[in-house]
Computed example of a mutant assay.
Amino acid sequence: MFGRINHSNYHQICDKLALADPDLADIISAYGYPPLWSRPNTFETLVHIILEQQVSLASALSALNKMRERVQEITPARVLLLTDEEFKACYFSRQKTSYTKYLAEAILSGQIDLTALEELPDDVIRAELTALKGIGNWTADVYLMFVLQHANIFPIGDLAAVNALKRVKKLPKDTSREEVLAVAEQWAPYKTVASMLLWHYYLSAGPPAR
């Protein structure tokens, strides 16, 4: 019934999770429903997610906006016209410059077709994306959750989601990856929505008391 999330089923899934898990119910009770975060299925979105790897959301957005100022519209063809110096002026690291160029070439050559990904299952999409230089599981998870709105993804590589889970479930900081995944599995087939609740908590609750 809920292979994907959308505005018509989102609150219903939140309520279903809250009924099954009092800790998630407490998040909704304290902070309301989380936004249904979404992004368009475009080259620019994937560049944005690559920029967000291991940096703050604000600095990633700053670099994206700087590039948009320079090229007006962030497309594979326009990005490939930029020199390395121009990338640097847009706050792109050497590594992220390389990843962005590689992605642009992969799209222009037909190696990857973002529109075609919309009809494929999670594991096939993940395999296609992670075959590209600079795209790992975290980037694939964010794409599956925010862009394609697949309902059953838990981003184990995302520190905010993992730390929020540990706080909500009162787990020790050194809880293993396997234990975190086991907790997240209890939210199947709606792990994406549970993750959005955790992000909502992380953004709303502020830092833990010392």
Results as ranks from 00 to 15, higher is better:
Pro172His: 01
Val142Leu: 11
Arg177Asp: 15
Ala151Gln: 03
Met145Arg: 04
Ala131Gln: 12
Val168Ser: 01
Lys173Glu: 04
His150Cys: 02
Tyr143Leu: 09
Val168Met: 02
Gly136Leu: 12
His150Gly: 00
Ala160Phe: 01
Asp158Thr: 08
Ala184Asp: 11
Leu165Ala: 08
Phe154Gln: 00
Glu179His: 13
Ala164Tyr: 10
Ile153His: 00
Lys170Met: 08
Val183Met: 13
Asp158Val: 06
Phe146Ile: 05
Ala182Leu: 14
His150Pro: 00
Ala131Ile: 07
Thr139Val: 12
Leu144Asn: 07
Ala160Gln: 04
Ser176Asn: 06
Asn163His: 10
Lys169Met: 14
Asp158Ile: 03
Asp141Pro: 09
Thr139Asp: 02
Ala161Gly: 02
Asn152Tyr: 03
Val183Asp: 13
Ala184Thr: 14
Ala140Pro: 11
Phe154Asp: 01
Ala182Arg: 15
Ala164Lys: 05
Glu179Met: 11
Thr130Asp: 01
Ala182Gly: 13
Asn137Gln: 13
Leu148Pro: 05
Thr130Gln: 05
Val168Lys: 06
Ala161Lys: 02
Ala184Ile: 15
Ala131His: 11
Lys166Glu: 02
Tyr143Ile: 06
Pro155Met: 02
Ala188Arg: 13
Leu159Pro: 08
Trp138Asp: 11
Thr130Met: 03
Val168Glu: 01
Pro189Gln: 06
Ala160Ile: 08
Leu159Asn: 05
Val168Gly: 00
Ala160Thr: 13
Lys133Leu: 12
Leu132Asp: 09
Tyr190Ile: 09
Ala164Gln: 10
Lys170Arg: 12
Lys191Phe: 04
Pro189Glu: 05
Pro155Trp: 01
Val147Trp: 01
Val162Leu: 07
Val180His: 06
Val168Asn: 00
Val183Ile: 15
Pro155Thr: 09
Val142Ile: 15
Ala188Ile: 07
Phe146Arg: 12
Ala188Asn: 12
Asn137Ser: 12
Asn152Cys: 01
Arg167Gly: 10
Val183Lys: 09
Ile156Thr: 05
Val162Cys: 07
Ala184Arg: 10
Val168Arg: 06
Trp187Thr: 12
Ala184Asn: 11
Asp141Met: 09
Leu129Trp: 10
His150Asn: 10
